[in-house]
């Protein structure tokens, strides 16, 4: 299988008044046509920054200092990202983490879906309107005909989120980047939306990059997982393998911190320590080392990229469990 999305050794920095934030370093990922990859990691680890980079919509203060992003064989970073602009919205779509900000506050939501359809499909007039209403119904918005003419402020938080999803799915893109698509939705709606995304994936061969802090959701939905910590991908592998036999100590802690019917508040585990300050000049090669129980002097040397088993990679000097044979 050739990869639809191929990120190779991507590094990205932000200039800020108080120094340079090294937000991504040597990030590599592959996502095949129709595949689903979960990107997990604690808040601030660089998940959104990475997905913005794929879409070429990062902050003016951001600079890509190395690496490549290829989509269906095209280099997205070439010519100042011109290839990206033509594909964005049609072949590549994104569901943003902050739905209200991503929607135009002074345009009816139905029209915003129609705008996308007019731009990227042959649908016009009444047909476009009918399709827009269908898109609203697909994401389980009750009373879609009336909601067509609602403004974002008239909708609840969860409905705005679903409108956002409807816009992203309207053109049946080849790659969907979904940044926390269902946070703040109740379980039933959440399940319906994930089913919709999965069905589109199966029917149209749409690939999905799912960014989430809900490991349970990632486990249900994704074939593969990539674990991010402080701008590094520390482990990639088949979902079940990562859950059963996490090789990186950070993945292991993340899995352990997931509450499953915990009985008491005190039993909720948090991961000790914070992400390191990404402006520091002396960031160690392993950005997890200052929080790691397994640290040894070897951890101050450049990180290996170990293959634990085919398709299961880890960047750590002391990988934990080996995959069982």
């Amino acid at each position: 299988m050739s990869a639809l999305l191929e990120i190779d050794k991507l590094s990205l920095e932000f200039r800020t008044r108080s120094g340079i934030v090294r937000a991504l370093e040597n990030v590599s990922l592959q996502l095949p046509e129709g595949g689903s990859l979960g990107l997990v990691g604690e808040s601030g680890s660089g998940k959104s920054v990475l997905s913005f980079a794929v879409l070429g919509i990062q902050d003016a203060a951001a600079t890509i200092t190395g690496g490549t992003i290829r989509f269906a064989g095209t280099d997205l970073l070439a010519d100042g990202g011109s290839a990206m602009k033509t594909m964005r919205g049609r072949e590549l779509a994104m569901i943003f983490q902050n739905p209200r900000v991503a929607l135009n506050p002074i345009r009816q939501v139905g029209r915003q879906i129609e705008d996308v359809l007019l731009r990227h499909t042959a649908l016009r007039g009444a047909a476009a309107r009918a399709r827009a209403i269908e898109c609203l119904a697909d994401v389980r918005i009750p009373d879609p005909e009336r909601r067509y003419s609602a403004y974002p402020f008239e909708l609840s938080g969860g409905m705005c989120q679903r409108v956002m999803i409807a816009i992203a799915l309207a053109c049946k893109p080849r790659l969907l980047i979904a940044d926390e698509p269902t946070t703040g939705l109740d379980v039933t709606t959440q399940a319906a939306i994930m089913r919709l995304i999965r069905d589109l994936g199966r029917e149209k061969g749409m690939a999905t990059l799912l960014i989430t802090h809900d490991l349970g959701l990632a486990r249900d939905f994704c074939d593969k997982l990539a674990v991010m910590h402080a701008g590094h991908i520390v482990e990639v592998g088949p979902t079940e393998t990562l859950f059963r036999t996490p090789a990186h100590p950070y993945t292991a802690q993340l899995v352990r911190a997931t509450p499953v019917g915990q009985e008491r508040l005190e039993n909720l585990a948090s991961i000790p320590g914070n992400l390191p300050d990404l402006r520091r000049g002396d960031l160690p090669p392993c950005r997890f080392s200052e929080r790691c129980e397994l640290r040894s002097p070897a951890c101050a040397t450049p990180l290996p990229n170990l293959v634990v088993s085919p398709g299961h990679l880890v960047g750590c000097h002391h990988p934990q469990a080996r995959s069982s044979p």
């Binding site: 926390e180 802090h213 490991l215 993340l254 911190a257 997931t258 585990a269």
Partner: peptide, 9 residues
């Protein structure tokens, strides 16, 4: 909603 499990705890 926007917090990972560790921060949530």
């Amino acid at each position: 909603a926007a917090l990972d499990v560790s921060v949530q705890a």
